[in-house]
């Protein structure tokens, strides 16, 4: 099986290039994932660099651009991919080395969304109550693994990564706006005002298309806009 992989080591390369790799068919097993193949290729060539950890799609380390589409290597079946398999780093971010990108911009937008429950009421001795229906509002939101597949597939985020929060961070904004226990709705909405942070989303929906967890940031962004509209009336 043939691969074409983006290589760049600033320690020795003046510019990036694509390198061909071949994986012996004898090393391929049914149900093999792309990450398994990458680990085999790394055993052949230790210098090939990428992040990985859980191998089952929950830690969010191995987001990359696979045949032109962002995804997680560990839950992408090799058999589903056209060869030669072309692997590039997540688009639009500074490349540190090979398939490893600098996600600082992505993380700082996440922090800017105040992704934590704000509730200054006195704490009860037991849990705060939340009905199953209220809790259900958080389904499809809290499962985000911060893999950055969505934000780095979003043209609005490519152009304004410092001003537009991006789909991942906005999904978290809505996760806390939607939480019956959160008391900071006004603060959260105030901070999202203006032409960029929220409103740079043009519903291109690449985020929905690529999310490896099947989440829908575009819908979450729509819900925030609705809430803002409701508040202004």
């Amino acid at each position: 099986m043939r691969f074409s992989i983006y290589r760049f080591d600033p320690d020795k390369d003046s510019q990036p290039y694509m390198q061909d790799y071949a994986l012996d068919e004898a090393k391929i097993w049914p149900g093999m994932m792309l990450l398994d193949a990458l680990l085999e290729l790394k055993a052949q060539d230790e210098t090939l660099s990428f992040r990985r950890s859980c191998q089952e799609g929950v830690c969010g380390s191995d987001g990359m651009n696979i045949n032109g589409r962002n995804g997680l290597a560990c839950i992408t079946p090799l058999a589903s991919l056209k060869t030669p398999i072309e692997l590039r780093p997540l688009p639009g971010q500074p490349v540190i080395r090979d398939l490893i990108v600098d996600l600082n911009q992505f993380y700082s937008q996440y922090r800017a969304a105040k992704p934590y429950l704000i509730n200054e009421d006195p704490e009860p001795e037991v849990e705060r109550l939340q009905s199953p229906a209220e809790r259900e509002q958080l389904d499809g939101l809290y499962e985000c693994i911060l893999c950055a597949c969505c934000s780095t597939s979003c043209p609005s985020f490519w152009w304004n990564p410092d001003k537009f929060l991006g789909p991942a961070a906005l999904l978290q904004s809505w996760r806390f706006l939607a939480d019956s226990r959160d008391r900071a709705t006004d603060l959260r909405l105030d901070e999202l005002e203006g032409p960029f942070k929220l409103f740079r989303c043009h519903t291109i929906m690449n985020c929905v298309e690529v999310c490896p967890k099947g989440l829908n940031p575009t819908r979450a962004i729509g819900r925030i806009k609705e809430l803002m509209l409701k508040r202004s009336m």
Partner: peptide
């Protein structure tokens, strides 16, 4: 420690009476 987590915002599944 579990109540503390709940106060921090952990999205525990809920019973019909609203408890964890």
């Amino acid at each position: 420690v579990v109540y503390e987590l709940e106060h921090m915002g952990v999205p525990f599944s809920r019973l019909d009476n609203g408890k964890i």
